[in-house]
């Protein structure tokens, strides 16, 4: 398997910015396109994706694979995804560790799974089938959740770590989702990050959320909050400079606002790099004196 490219900091490709992106290059390193938004036969969205793909790497990020449902895999969907991937040659293809419907109904939400051996086996088998069709590793993202199952036998982080080993897939670690779920379920967000296998995390997500008083809601309609920036810094320290994407789906602001968020993420990565260099330099000096 080829090494995952280090893309830098990107943003989601959203219709709000289509006109501006056709006129100027965004100050971002790459784009993430929601797969389903481009599973069409023609028209402007595909034209825009063609346009941005000429100058920047693209990743496909799905919301409807429903890897955890007990319905059969949607082979038509998979075929369309594979066709899209052949056309746009994304750096990788991701979706979510969740289910999105049952009884052949699609609920269009990212629904939580119980973390059990039964589910681990089920999801790993389906990941294998998806990877066969796509001819590449699938990347799965942790979702925000608002309830947990009392019969789970492991934590979400343990489940995700076990899954990537068993199914040979990779992780899109959504730092905001870790923060939101940690608040909603009372677990330690940093301990979750610590559990992630470093060599499997190929991408990070950052986004804003809403505080509903009793719980946090993953709304993607606000700037990344200071606490999530702190958790991002912690994540970069632990996992290295992993390609990162700023998500913004509701009340989408002007492109310039997203570019500011990208700059902030870059700055944090640069600061962590500088810390590491200082630490390594100090260690080298220490070793020289010791010798």
């Amino acid at each position: 398997m080829e090494a995952i490219p280090k893309l830098g900091i990107g943003i989601g490709l959203r219709t709000t910015h289509f006109s501006e992106l056709l006129e100027r290059s965004a100050q971002v390193d790459w784009f993430e396109a929601v797969s389903e938004n481009f599973m069409m036969d023609g028209g402007r969205p595909l034209h825009v994706l063609d346009h941005v793909r000429r100058d920047a790497p693209v990743v496909l990020h799905g919301v409807s694979l429903s890897i955890g449902t007990t319905d059969p895999l949607d082979e038509t969907y998979l075929t369309r995804l594979a066709t899209l991937a052949r056309r746009f040659e994304p750096e990788w293809i991701s979706d979510h560790l969740c289910w999105t419907g049952a009884k052949h109904h699609n609920l269009h939400d990212l629904l939580p799974l119980p973390w059990t051996e039964e589910v681990l086996t089920h999801v790993a088998e389906r990941v294998a089938r998806v990877q066969d069709v796509l001819g590449r590793r699938l990347v799965l993202e942790n979702v925000s959740s608002y309830f947990t199952f009392s019969h789970s036998t492991m934590s979400e982080a343990e489940f995700l770590s076990a899954l990537v080993e068993r199914a040979d897939c990779d992780i899109l670690l959504d730092v905001n989702n870790v923060y939101v779920s940690a608040f909603n379920h009372g677990f330690d967000a940093r301990a979750y990050i610590d559990t992630m296998p470093r060599d499997r995390v190929v991408q990070l997500h950052l986004a804003g959320h809403s505080d509903m008083g009793t719980h946090l809601l993953d709304t993607h309609d606000a700037p990344v909050c200071p606490e999530v920036w702190d958790l991002y810094r912690y994540t970069i320290r632990r996992l290295g400079r992993v390609p990162t994407l700023i998500e913004w789906d509701g009340n989408v602001p002007p492109l310039a606002t997203l570019e500011d968020e990208v700059s902030r993420a870059r700055l944090i990565c640069d600061e962590v790099d500088a810390e590491t260099r200082t630490k390594n330099g100090g260690a080298r000096v220490g070793r020289t004196f010791a010798a």
């Binding site: 609920l107 939400d109 629904l111 608002y146 309830f147 199952f149 019969h151 009793t214 719980h215 809601l217």
Partner: peptide
């Protein structure tokens, strides 16, 4: 249902977060 609740939200309220979001999104 084996869905956990706590002092902040009952299991029904937690399930209801999804129910509301799903309807609103569609």
């Amino acid at each position: 249902l084996p869905v956990g609740g706590d002092g902040r939200l009952s299991p029904a309220q937690r399930i209801g977060i999804y129910t509301d979001m799903i309807f609103a999104r569609i």
